[in-house]
Design a protein around this nucleic acid. Structure first.
Length: 110
DNA sequence: GAGGTGACGACCC
DNA sequence: TGGGTCGCCACCT
């Protein structure tokens, strides 16, 4: 079996994010039990573009709901993807962030 | 084996 | 309220 590390764990959670919803790096890290590793989640997302199967990293934003990953996607690709799912984005910031916020520690806590 | 890096978060002033 | 600084832990070289 493959060496399932922290990255794969992050990918697994990110893939469970339903369309039209977004989550934060800290939320995923907290769900994994390592909230201090919020940076690791972001680092994992960097490799998410090369991960298989692909991970919807565009649904993951920072704690402020800001599209920090947008710079890595290149252009407005991230915003376009979110808007295509019904997520309203303005000024690189997710509108009604707390409303569409998807917390794995709650949704997957069952 | 050790050092450096990083798509963040929380604390301090 | 806003800006700046520190910490934090896994992956890569």
């Amino acid at each position: 079996m493959p060496d399932y590390g922290f990255f794969d764990n992050v990918y697994d959670v990110a893939r469970q994010i339903p369309p039209g919803r977004v989550t934060s790096y800290g939320a995923i890290a907290h769900y994994l039990g390592t909230k201090g590793s919020s940076r690791i989640v972001g680092y994992a997302m960097q490799a998410a573009g090369t991960a298989h199967p692909p991970v919807p990293a565009h649904r993951v934003v920072n704690r402020q709901g800001l599209l920090t990953a947008k710079f890595h996607f290149g252009g407005d690709t991230m915003q376009r993807l979110l808007e295509a799912e019904g997520v309203k984005v303005k000024d690189d910031q997710v509108q009604d962030f707390k409303t569409i916020f998807w917390d794995p520690s709650i949704e997957l806590a069952l």
